[in-house]
Design a protein around this nucleic acid. Sequence first.
DNA 1: GATCCTATCTTGCCATTGACAAGATGCCCC
DNA 2: GGGGCATCTTGTCAATGGCAAGATAGGATC
Lengths: 186, 186
Amino acid sequence: MTGTRAYHHGDLRRALLAAALEAIEEVGPGALSLRDLARRAGVSHAAPAHHFGDKAGLLTALAAQGFDLLAQTLSEARDDLLGAGVAYVDFAVRHRAHFEVMFRPELYRTDDAEVVTAQGRARAALRAGVAALPTRGTPADPDRDSLAAWSIAHGFATLWLAGALPDRVGEDPREAARAVLRRLVT
Amino acid sequence: MTGTRAYHHGDLRRALLAAALEAIEEVGPGALSLRDLARRAGVSHAAPAHHFGDKAGLLTALAAQGFDLLAQTLSEARDDLLGAGVAYVDFAVRHRAHFEVMFRPELYRTDDAEVVTAQGRARAALRAGVAALPTRGTPADPDRDSLAAWSIAHGFATLWLAGALPDRVGEDPREAARAVLRRLVT
DNA sequence: GATCCTATCTTGCCATTGACAAGATGCCCC
DNA sequence: GGGGCATCTTGTCAATGGCAAGATAGGATC
């Protein structure tokens, strides 16, 4: 049941997804090898195909999982721009593998049903989180506002993950993100 | 000289880089195949190795080229946040292949000398472009300001390229970017 | 003008990978 | 206890990246 079973592995699908997350953290989603995952799980090289069809199938499952996780994370965050933005960046750093797959549509099937619904959940949570920026002068436009908030959080997260930011931003992504996001909210 | 010559191709290095840009626009940098490039250029499958060593070598050359191009683009843009930001997004869309390689450090050698100097140029142009945001109340912090500007432009560009933005943002990346960036500058 | 010399490109090869086909294994349910 | 089915294995193929060894050309040197 819970254990690591023999021949009929018992939980191979979950084991492969977990192994995939590990592998992606090490080499990135592009260099992911199904055969390597099979080795990590101790099964034959063709076993993954049964559960996911092909590599895109596996990454599709990961993407759906990732969007669900993001939706959950955002809905638990503080209900303002700063809280949601920091939570977004934190998610990207802590769930790097998921995040990197989610925003690389060429790697998976974006029209997959589970992906689409999970994406919808994440999108809704995002909009609820950033609510509305305090607007000055210009008439409020919630669409533009949430787009701006999403952009700055996503950009910071992406640059952080790419290692493109100067050392001076420090070691703590949450703290650094808060300082940057504050520029939008002040 | 200019033409497409036989055996000793004459301009193979350049031809391969051009072919790589084409191929990356079609299938992304991850699915790039050296053998496919060789076929496009009409040479044998091992010819690229002579000029670039390996795949990472070719992508390193592309990354350096990309950072130089970005530096040039930014230095020609209007000298405020809106102008620089729009130019940044426009660069990402028009030079998608370069842009996608530049911010995927696992694909190339980030410690390459040409890459490092080109990166420096781009960084300087970026800082000059965003200059300083108008600050209200809080004491000015140019580092944080330019980081915020970079983040929002980079985030918007990345989301645009990933096709993650809702249809409602429209077809023109420059116009859409301007609307979003204005939230930071207003 | 002949000869070397080196950058450039080719041919041949090997290990790895993704994908597919066919077969083996074990569990569940009647 | 026997059929049926999901699960996993073995075997194979084409494509790829990378390496080694060789062929070719174009210029430099004498």
